[in-house]
Each structure stands twice: as structure tokens, then as C-alpha cells.
């Protein structure tokens, strides 16, 4: 199991790198699907079963279909002709990324506490516990989330509608 975790972790990182570095948006989207599936596997290994299923349904199902539709709708021939970044911009971005990496890594390492110990088995991830929490302690956020989805729905329809002059 431990080996499986590190294997899937490597797969996640590699597919994420492909998403960012690939010139062709279609390949990026396919790699992103792979990345979502491996993250779902990680959730399974961390015993968050409900979230793992949600990850596949929402991300790999709904969101990626949306992405692929938009890539299909837009003209992709221009992607290869997009200009490269300036050297200064690239250097500054890399510098920023390295700074953030070292900062958070240092914080994690020196966090104190007992982050190094391996985790105990538990049953917090099963759908019963999550559902109970969603409909008791987190009922208001749950309803607000539905409102958010309604707002997104109306906003999307308004944006996508062709204006009649």
C-alpha cells in the first residue's frame, strides 16, 4: 500500500507536469484527466472514499467534458504560434516558484508537532460520516453551495447568450 501511494504520487506529479508543459491543449486536457484519476486514487488510499468518487464524477466527468468542449469550440491552430515568454519574465517566475517552494517546505519541516508519524486507521472517510456532517453541522454552507451553483448557472447562461443588438 505504501509503495502504491508513492507510485501514484509520482504519476500525479508527472501528469501534472505534462499538463503544464504540453503545447497542445487537447493533450493537456487528457493528462489532466489522468492527474484527476490518480488524485482520486490517492484519496482512496487516504480512506476518503466519498471524496474519491466525487473527484471522478465532478472533475474527471463534468469539468473535463466542459474543458474539452471549449477546446473543441475554439480554434486551436493558433496555439503553436503563440509567442514565448520574455527571458526576464521567465526568470522572475522561476525565482518566485522556488521561493514559495523553499518557504513552505521549511514551514512543513519545522512545523513541530508530530507530522512525521504515520496515520492511524479510521472511519472518517465513509459516506455515512460525511453525509451526517453535511446535513447537521454544515447545513448552511451546503445550502449556500447550492445557491452558488444557481448563480454560476445563471451567470453562464447570461455570458454565453448572443447579444441581440
Amino acid at each position: 500500500m505504501t509503495f502504491l501511494f508513492y507510485f501514484v504520487a509520482c504519476l500525479t506529479i508527472i501528469s501534472a507536469l505534462f499538463v503544464v508543459l504540453n503545447r497542445n491543449p487537447v493533450y493537456s486536457a487528457v493528462m489532466l484527466v489522468l492527474c484527476f484519476f490518480s488524485i482520486a486514487t490517492l484519496y482512496l488510499l487516504l480512506e476518503a472514499y466519498f471524496v474519491a468518487v466525487l473527484e471522478i464524477i465532478i472533475y474527471a466527468g463534468a469539468i473535463m467534458v466542459l474543458f474539452l468542449f471549449v477546446i473543441m469550440l475554439l480554434d486551436l491552430g493558433r496555439e503553436a504560434a503563440l509567442p514565448k515568454l520574455k527571458k526576464l519574465d521567465k526568470a522572475l517566475s522561476l525565482f518566485l516558484v522556488v521561493i514559495i517552494f523553499l518557504g513552505i517546505l521549511t514551514l512543513t519541516m519545522w512545523a513541530g508537532g508530530d507530522l512525521h508519524q504515520t496515520l492511524n486507521p479510521s472511519s472518517v472517510g465513509d459516506i455515512k460520516a460525511v453525509g451526517k456532517a453535511l446535513f447537521t453541522d454544515f447545513l448552511l454552507p451546503f445550502e449556500v453551495a447550492s445557491l452558488l451553483l444557481l448563480v454560476a448557472l445563471i451567470g453562464t447562461v447570461y455570458l454565453a447568450k448572443r447579444r441581440v443588438k
Binding site: V51, L54, I63, A133, A145
Partner: peptide
């Protein structure tokens, strides 16, 4: 996990 649920909702809307 409830937070993750809400973040996923937000991601879909976004």
C-alpha cells in the same frame, strides 16, 4: 472532507 466537497462545488461554478 466537507471542505473538499465545498471546494469542488466552487471549482465547478468557477
Amino acid at each position: 472532507q466537507v471542505f473538499v466537497f465545498l471546494v469542488m462545488t466552487l471549482a465547478a461554478a468557477e
